[in-house]
Amino acid sequence: MGHPVVEGVRAFAADLVAIRRDIHAHPELGMEEARTSALVAQELRSLGIEVTEGVGRFGVVGTIRGTRPGNRSVGLRADMDALQIPEATGKPYASKRPGVMHACGHDGHTTMLLGAARWLAAHRDFGGTVHLIFQPAEEGRGGAQAMLDDALFDRFPCDAVYGLHNKPTIAAGTFATRKGPALAAADSWKVVFRGTGGHGGSTPHLATDVTIVQAHFVLALQTIVGRNVPAVEAAVLSVGSIEGGSPISPNVMPAELTVTGTSRSYSPAIRDLLERRIAELAQGLAATHGCTAEASYRRGVPALVNHAEQTDVALEAARGLVDASEVDAHFPPVTGGEDFALMLEKRPGAFMFIGAGAGPDGRSANLHTPHFDFNDDIIPMGVAWWVGVVEQELGSPQG
Rank of each mutant, 00 (worst) to 15 (best):
H3G: 01
M1A: 11
A14E: 15
A282M: 12
V40K: 03
G90L: 04
T335F: 13
G337S: 14
A103F: 05
T260K: 13
R299I: 04
T52Q: 14
L219K: 04
L367M: 04
A365S: 15
G226E: 08
E33C: 05
C291E: 00
R35F: 09
P380Y: 00
H109G: 14
A215K: 04
P348A: 06
L367D: 10
N375I: 02
V192Q: 08
S263G: 10
L120T: 04
T260Y: 04
H26E: 09
M343N: 13
D323T: 14
N375S: 10
S188P: 02
G240P: 11
V387H: 05
F353M: 12
R298W: 04
G240I: 03
R77E: 10
A182G: 06
Q84P: 14
E43M: 02
S73M: 07
R178W: 05
V100L: 10
I170H: 07
G337V: 06
G284K: 04
T169W: 10
A151L: 10
T52W: 09
T208V: 00
A122G: 09
V161N: 01
E233F: 03
P247F: 15
V130A: 06
G75H: 10
G142K: 00
V387E: 09
L321R: 00
S202D: 12
T177A: 15
S263C: 15
L344V: 12
A384E: 06
L132E: 10
E345N: 14
E256M: 11
L304P: 12
W189D: 07
R276C: 11
S265H: 02
G382A: 04
V252P: 09
L83I: 08
F193V: 01
M1T: 06
V327W: 07
A286P: 00
L152D: 07
A116H: 08
G320E: 11
Q84Y: 03
R141L: 13
G201A: 15
I248T: 13
P247H: 12
A116C: 09
W119P: 00
D377Y: 02
E391L: 01
T89D: 13
G2A: 07
A11Y: 00
L342D: 11
H199P: 14
V17W: 09
M253I: 15
G173I: 02
V161Q: 04
L152F: 05
A318L: 10
R276W: 09
P268G: 06
G70N: 06
I23F: 15
S37Y: 03
T260R: 14
R68H: 12
S396M: 00
P302R: 02
K167S: 05
G349A: 10
P69F: 05
E43K: 12
G355F: 12
L114P: 02
T211G: 00
E326G: 03
G142P: 00
R45D: 12
H368N: 13
C104N: 08
M352F: 12
P136Q: 04
M80E: 09
G180P: 14
H368Q: 08
E43L: 05
A41P: 13
A308F: 07
P332V: 05
P348G: 08
I85W: 11
